[in-house]
Amino acid sequence: MDNSAIIQPVMILVTGGTGFVGKALVQHLIASGKTVRILLRPSRVSPQLPRGVSVDAAVCSLRDERGLRAAMRGVDTVIHLAGGERQSGRANLTEVDVLGTQGLVNAAKQAGIQRILYLSHLGADQVSAYPLLRAKGLAENILIRSGLNYTIVRSAVIFGPGDQFTTAFSRLLRLSPAFVMIPGGGSSLLQPVWIEDLVNCLALAIEREDLIGQTISIGGLEALTFRQILVYLMEAMGIQRRFWSVSPPTLRLLALLADQIPGFPVSIYWLDYLAVDRTTLLDSIPRTFGILPARFYRQLDYLTPSSKQSSRRRGFVL
């Protein structure tokens, strides 16, 4: 990396700052001396702000451009993490991911924002047949055509305590009596990236002038089949389950039914994500950011039975 091409943001506005990635990133940014403001969507529920840090907050919808301009006062960099996928089948991806991004861009142009970084997914494509990936692709296109300085980071699946990946599937494995259904043979490839590695990449990306106008794909050091990943989860949890291969159309129908159950752990969007391989170059993070990513199976201690209480004390939800 060319250290002469480093930018130091004055104040950073983070959308989605109370989510899984957002909390970890905000804590990292503040620990490194950055000034951060979190954008909170209006809600009757008290937001779960990152613990142990002092952070500014602004309450505003992504569709409220006037409110967004006020939230951007004194801000020069925006990190856009907000998305609707956590709500699974109840998500309005057009409202949050697409129109929300357009509202953010409109306000950013009027507020004189110098840089926007957007966290997207591997496989994002505005003509994708899969709703989540299509929404992410449309949001990317809004940024690319905005005239603003942007950086898009397309990430592989992210894992860590409180995630929507290992945590969700570990709960599903525990709920399964003796077997777990997997699409096809569970052969689709994923490239899990550890949450701390991801936030390090995002923090470095906003300081890199050479990454302006770039779309970067990142992932972990290894490509694992979904079946291998579930085996690692079961080993960490100390349980055993058999695999039952089910055709994707049948599993989609079952997932749509299960999604009606309050608190069902796995989002229906996982079937879209598992439909094809979701990988990039294995050296993507070391080559771009000079970081050696953690290996998947070495970071699953938070799933072991003995770690539950300590994980809860750290503020993670399992």
Rank of each mutant, 00 (worst) to 15 (best):
W194D: 03
E140A: 07
L133D: 09
G123Y: 04
P183F: 04
A129K: 09
G112R: 08
L117M: 05
A108D: 00
S187G: 13
H80L: 07
S170V: 15
Q110G: 01
A91E: 10
L202A: 10
T167H: 01
S128Q: 08
S176P: 01
G83L: 11
R86K: 13
G100I: 00
R134G: 05
L148T: 12
G162E: 07
G162I: 06
T166D: 02
G84F: 12
N200A: 08
R134P: 08
S155H: 11
R145H: 15
L132Y: 15
P131A: 15
P192A: 02
S155E: 10
N141E: 14
L133S: 11
S128I: 06
E85G: 02
D125Y: 07
R174L: 08
R134W: 14
S187D: 13
A168P: 00
L190P: 13
D76L: 11
Q164H: 11
A111R: 04
I206V: 09
G186N: 10
Q126S: 12
P183N: 06
N141Q: 15
R86F: 14
S88R: 15
C201I: 00
I113D: 02
Y150D: 08
L172D: 10
A178L: 10
H121W: 10
T101I: 01
R115K: 03
K109A: 02
R171P: 05
Q126E: 14
A82H: 12
V157Q: 06
S128D: 09
Q114P: 02
